[in-house]
Design a protein around this nucleic acid. Structure first.
Lengths: 329, 329
DNA sequence: TTGTAAGCGTTATCAG
DNA sequence: CTGATAACGCTTACAA
């Protein structure tokens, strides 16, 4: 019989009280060296390990923040994880990541689980269009921050990155260089960020009095393994310019286009990128980059603040994406 | 005063016992419809949410598996997450991911924390060379599975992917096509997988009696943001062939090489890839792909089995990477 | 400085 | 079928 040792076992073995054991384990009160040694010896002898769940339960604290992401393999989110981790780990918090695979049902289930006593706060990039249902799920005043996407009817803190200006500027450059047939390639999912970017695309055309050929506005499904085929079909040869509104799309497109030597053929493009490969692309296209590090830092700081002050009023923060021009221009 | 409602509160409001409340919440015993309704009404009224930590504590079960990864932004690991999730979610387990950023210290800390009552089992891709210390940290018989890398002195279950044959075969192809100056580009970190791949590179040369120019064996630091510069320096023009032993490296290299039109210049190459972009690369290089999905499935199934039978004897599983030849050949 | 004991929210045993 | 109540392992007044 090899049941796991508890504090009581240790206290018994050491000939002291459980309170004393607790205090030496947690360094929470002064204990004489003699006692401390007895305790530590017993701990070693019994291979005692503190039961963190019991502790968390008793304290109502977990030193843990949940990060709910729709797609963990998107470099945008994985970078964010590191960034947030860096901030919160300074206060001894850890981050647990759960992946919802863009499924609202999964998100709902996870939010329900995590918010019911597993973590002290939540950061979530939501797959929901509308957040009304979620409000009943998350306890009132539970520290929660929404990232990157803002569903309707959501009253929590949000941190967003606006791509409007950057995309507008990118499209403006293309128009100013004389392009009139600009292909716009975006994702098939519906989300606030994409809508905004597309909006910039349209508005810029309007400003210059250029009519958009709707045939050139394409929505590709990037969850499919092979964007290649889609792109092939989608990419008309008679347009001299293209705009890609999503980072995942841009990588695929970039491969496709370089492989077909289209940039050397004079193609002009604006892409979206959050990854290190943006450096390579810069030879051929303007690239919109998002301030992920800043977003992560702010998210980390803010969730910590919410945890300590749960009933401050919520607010939105909007960061700006930036257009980095390709090397030639 | 708006303290969170407990079962006791609910039982009081519903005029029943806590036992009954518990049973309707968990569907764990038959309760008459009348009682059940009373309970559910009270739950709604008080906005009662079960405290999962208390439950986990009491039950000693968490329905949670920890996945400890060295680099969450590596597509190899993020794909693995999805794969594992798919398996374990069928048994209602969730998976929490923690990122160690290739730091053994972080790994140790996380293992300590997770294994002390936060999760029911662990899957870890370790940043450790040697696992002796870890054995004292993880409780005896704690369900744990090591993935992808096998540190020395590790007696747990491991699931590995051997790249030996695939790399050997890739190099063999190059040699048979007449190449004698093959540049080998690998990572700067030390890990079992890379060692094995490099070993295949060497062994294959030996088999063909070709001496390796050690100047052409390069270790690049992929944690640096800009592999581009490194590659530029590293890549000698007089070699007609190159082998890339890591997926992250290969992507950078591929960009660099296509941008410089080197494939059209006749460069022959073997790369490592786990991502969807492998399709694009296949026009230009042989690509080693790893059976990530299989690895994930096995890992998921095995950890579940370990959780139910914690004291079966550990064993190793070795999967084989596969060489996919480029389209022309 | 150390020990005693109550109590955190749940589950589960056992009587009714 | 339902209800008291002990117990899970730990922290923390409070008492000694």
């Amino acid at each position: 019989m090899n049941m796991k040792a508890t504090m009581k076992d240790v206290s018994y073995a050491a000939g002291v009280s459980v309170a004393t054991v607790s205090h030496v384990i947690n360094n929470t009160k002064y204990v004489t060296d003699e006692m401390r040694k007895k305790v530590l010896d017993a701990v070693a002898l019994l291979q005692y390990k503190q039961n963190i769940t019991a502790r968390n339960f008793k304290m109502g604290k977990h030193l843990t923040i949940g990060f709910v992401v729709p797609d963990i393999s998107n470099i945008f989110f994985s970078t964010l994880i590191n960034e947030i981790e860096m901030v919160v780990s300074k206060q001894n918090y850890m981050i647990v990541v759960v992946n919802t695979q863009e499924s609202p049902e999964k998100e709902e289930e996870q939010l329900r689980r995590l918010s019911s006593g597993l973590v002290d706060g939540l950061i979530v990039a939501s797959a929901f269009d509308d957040y009304t249902r979620i409000r009943d799920i998350i306890p009132k005043n539970f520290p929660i921050i929404l990232l990157d996407r803002k569903p309707r009817n959501c009253t929590c803190d949000t941190i967003l990155i606006s791509g409007y200006n950057a995309v507008f500027q990118g499209v403006e450059n293309l128009l100013q260089r004389g392009h009139r047939k600009i292909c716009c390639i975006t994702g098939s999912q519906h989300m606030s960020t994409l809508d905004e970017r597309l909006c910039a695309f349209r508005d810029c055309h309007k400003k210059y009095g250029v009519e958009i050929d709707e045939e050139l506005v394409l929505r590709l499904d990037i969850t499919k393994k092979d964007i290649f085929a889609d792109l092939k079909r989608a990419f008309p040869r008679n347009t001299g310019a293209a705009v890609f509104l999503q980072n995942t799309l841009t990588l695929g497109a970039f491969f496709y286009l370089t492989n077909h030597n289209m940039f050397n053929g004079g193609l002009d493009a604006v892409g979206y990128s959050d990854a290190s490969w943006r450096h390579y692309a810069l030879k051929y296209m303007d690239v919109v980059t998002q301030p992920i590090d800043k977003m992560g830092t702010i998210a980390g700081e803010r969730i910590l603040e919410r945890i300590t002050h749960p009933n401050k009023r919520a607010c939105d923060i909007i960061l700006q994406a930036k257009l980095v021009k390709k090397s030639g221009t």
